[in-house]
Write a protein that binds this DNA or RNA. Structure first.
Length: 747
DNA sequence: GGTCCAACATTTTTT
DNA sequence: ATGTTGGACC
């Protein structure tokens, strides 16, 4: 079959493009792409021009559809470099690029996250966006530092205006594309007006430092596309086919970007699942996917509802939970997969028991021939990983924690990188103040203040002033220290100029005195982490041996790593991550820990139904990651902030179906406690079975009371308790915060 | 200007 | 329970 003529001619416009595979026989290559696809999948893959919405339930082969569709486009309609695929994580982007190569499509396809794509665009088109191409990207901590400065400048107190909280509000505004001017116009009371002031001041602080925060990457790109039709045309010429994955989690700015890039050709394909929307708290707007058909009236809609991932048991359980959401589009998930084991719910005595139980289950699974890398443990909050890590360590089970962001947030890593960031962007004051005296080199707070003041007054680059420190008023004794710091920075800059990033990093660590400092502190952990950083740099150097890399690019890549990007499936280790990070992944065996009231659903989101529904979706996402085996665990007692608290059963556990779920109670020693056998669901939490009439208990508000009777029922364990002040009360033991009092504890 | 200790928050989820 | 910050003291 002949190729459309326009695809050939465009090759001249883009000389870097790989050879066009017109010599490949059309029929065999495209046939391979369609082999083994179901009808709806095939429909999505072969759709070429015009908007396309793929509503894809969990495990419905969405990734396969996306990659095959991109390949199909590249074979039949266009060249790879006209295709832009936006994924949710860098890892997904890399995997997609890899798969495209396996499909022999050729290079040139752009796979990126929204953030990395935007950062790239803003550097290339910096002048048009009113930026300098070497801008810094500020992470959470940098943003807090910048905001702290803004607060100080505005003359407000950090106590009344905590930087982190203000940043949340400003981030929400930016996601909605609300500028500081507009925010000021909309401010309706004193508090809001001050926040508007801070927004403005914060923007100034960032601009002075040639810095953008994460949200700026999106908003500035969206603005650029909106205000610069010439550039938008240029980009639309380049990116003729656009795919956006996980569309249910896009915010308004991301929506504008996707729409802006596809404004004229409308070749926008979005995929997602409203039931897996879990990022509303950071501005994700479910309307984007729900109203896609109104946005693009000639949109084709494809539904992928057959699940290829999970057993019927897992799918039934997950579906039972999610069907409790009222605000949702009904969807029938089904699978032709073989039966597997029942979904397990294991209620444990406490967090240690829970962790030990998971470890022992993993041992058992691997002894029976399973692999570590097929296992994942999810949790709602990061701190839950502590117990589990401890238990895995003791059981000698290899594990990895998806914590890319936390790694780059470590002090020693941030310190090391700050030297490089300062070289890449000398205006980066946050980086400068971070390391000017780390390790200590006799430059104290007063000196730094004088330096910054002088720089602000004279409006000269700080590094210039540093090289001539005697010009700074009132700085005499510290001048020579400033001078040597300036020399150090010059040395690093020169090294960076001509050497690999690895070499530059090693230069920094050695000549800055950081290495000596860590050695002195016998801070083995810091050293290890920095070695890891250096290996990351080595890897980058190797990947860019052709000279395509740069310091700015490396720093950018690091700024935009996500938690999941850190995991390596080849490692042969159990994977630990938050439920949020688990999106899009799949594992043979999944444990979800801490499935208890207050944790999942999280107590901070109990107030509104919308929040509760998002928690339920989160639970749904976690459950549907499992292919064969799914275990939900909880603890009756949970150590929070060092205080041991009684927990209640999670609402979501009560929503599980009666069939295909087995319940288990684990006592302190990890032994199975007998549980009632009236069916599939336990009638009571079994540690209460040891409670007896006449025992004394303490209630947080009612005080001390005596147990009159206990009666297990299907909804929980009921007990009549006589309190001195209020007489007899009937309480549900699972929900009342009762503590057992030992007789010898009393006066 | 540097060091040490006590008070303090910290824990929702993240690019 | 743990890590960070700020203030007192050297």
């Amino acid at each position: 079959m002949a190729l459309p003529p326009h695809t050939r001619s465009t090759q001249l416009d883009f000389p870097t493009a790989q050879r066009y595979k017109s010599f490949m026989p059309y029929s065999s290559s495209t046939q391979n792409l369609l082999d083994g696809l179901t009808e709806p999948q095939r429909q999505a893959v072969t759709h070429i021009d015009g908007p396309l919405l793929v509503l894809a339930g969990p495990g419905s082969g969405k990734t396969r559809v996306i990659t095959h569709r991109a390949a199909y486009l590249a074979w039949t309609a266009t060249q790879p470099h006209h295709i832009l695929a936006i994924t949710f994580t860098n890892k997904a982007a890399n995997e997609m690029a890899q798969r495209m190569q396996q499909l022999d499509v050729g290079r040139g396809l752009t796979c990126a996250t929204f953030h990395s794509f935007c950062a790239r665009m803003l550097r290339i088109h910096a002048e048009r966006a009113n930026l300098r191409p070497n801008f810094s990207i500020f992470d959470q901590a940098d943003q807090v530092a910048a905001m702290a400065e803004a607060v100080a400048r505005t003359g407000l107190s950090k106590e009344n205006f905590p930087p982190a909280r203000i940043l949340n509000k400003i981030s929400a505004a930016k996601n909605e594309m609300i500028s500081w001017q507009q925010y000021a116009d909309d401010a309706y009371d004193w508090q809001e007006k001050r926040i508007a002031d801070l927004y403005a001041a914060y923007e100034t602080v960032l601009a002075e430092q040639n810095a953008l925060d994460f949200d700026d990457l999106l908003t500035k790109t969206a603005l650029l596309l909106g205000n610069d039709p010439e550039l938008r045309d240029q980009l639309q010429q380049r990116y003729r086919y656009i795919l956006v994955d996980e569309y249910q989690d896009t915010n308004h700015a991301q929506y504008l970007i996707a729409r802006g890039l596809a404004l004229d050709h409308e070749n926008l394909c979005v995929t997602g699942d409203p039931d897996q929307s879990i990022y509303a708290w950071r501005g994700a707007n479910l309307h984007n996917i729900l109203q896609f058909e109104e946005d693009f009236p000639n949109a084709v809609v494809v539904r992928l509802e057959q699940n290829y991932r999970s057993t019927p048991q897992i799918l039934t359980a997950a579906d039972a939970v999610i069907s409790h959401n009222r605000k949702r589009k009904e969807k029938k998930l089904w699978t032709a997969n073989n039966d597997g084991p029942a979904v397990a719910v294991t209620e444990c005595q406490d967090g240690h028991t829970e962790a030990a139980y998971i470890a022992s289950q993993i041992r058992q699974h691997v002894d029976a021939g399973g692999t570590f890398s097929g296992i994942a443990i999810f949790y709602r909050v990061n701190w839950l990983s502590r117990n589990i890590e401890h238990a895995l360590l003791q059981a000698r089970i290899p594990y990895q924690v998806a914590r890319g962001v936390a790694f780059y947030g470590r002090k020693e890593i941030k310190d090391t990188l700050a030297y490089l960031k300062l070289v890449a962007n000398p205006a980066d004051r946050v980086a400068l103040t971070r390391i000017i005296n780390v390790p200590t080199r006799g430059i104290g707070k007063t000196t730094v203040d004088r330096l910054l003041n002088f720089a602000a007054q004279t409006d000269r680059p700080i590094l210039d002033i540093l090289s001539n420190p005697k010009e700074i008023p009132d700085v005499s004794r510290a001048a020579k220290h400033l001078q040597s710091f300036a020399n150090l920075m010059t040395g690093i800059a020169q090294t960076a100029e001509t050497n690999s990033i690895q070499d530059t990093l090693e230069y920094v660590v050695r000549y800055s005195g950081l290495l000596a400092m860590w050695n002195k502190d016998t801070d083995k952990e810091a050293l290890g982490n920095v070695h890891e950083l250096i290996s990351a740099a080595t890897e980058y150097d190797q990947q860019h041996a052709d000279g395509s890399g740069s310091l700015t690019d490396w720093l950018q890549q690091i700024s935009l790593v996500g938690d999941v990007d850190a995991i390596d499936h080849q490692l042969g280790a159990v994977t630990l991550m938050t439920l949020h990070a688990a999106k899009g992944l799949e594992f043979d065996t999944v444990f979800i820990a801490g499935v208890e009231a207050g944790l999942l659903p999280h107590e901070r989101s109990n107030n509104e139904r919308a929040d509760l529904e998002e928690e339920r979706r989160l639970c749904f996402v976690g459950m549907t990651r499992a292919e064969r085996s799914l275990t939900l665990t909880s603890a009756h007692w949970r150590n929070v902030h060092g205080i041991i608290r009684r927990t209640a059963r999670s609402l979501f556990l009560t929503e599980l179906p009666k069939d295909s779920v087995t319940w288990l109670n684990i006592g302190q020693e990890g032994k199975t406690v007998d549980h009632d056998d009236d069916g599939q669901r336990p009638a009571s939490a079994n540690d209460y079975l040891t409670w007896q009439k006449g025992q004394l208990v303490r209630h947080p508000t009612h005080g001390i009371g005596r147990v009159l009777w206990i009666r297990p029922a299907s909804q929980g364990t009921y007990a009549g308790i006589h309190f001195a002040a209020e007489g007899e009360k009937t309480l549900v033991l699972e929900y009342a915060k009762l503590e057992l009092i030992e007789p010898d504890e009393l006066p």
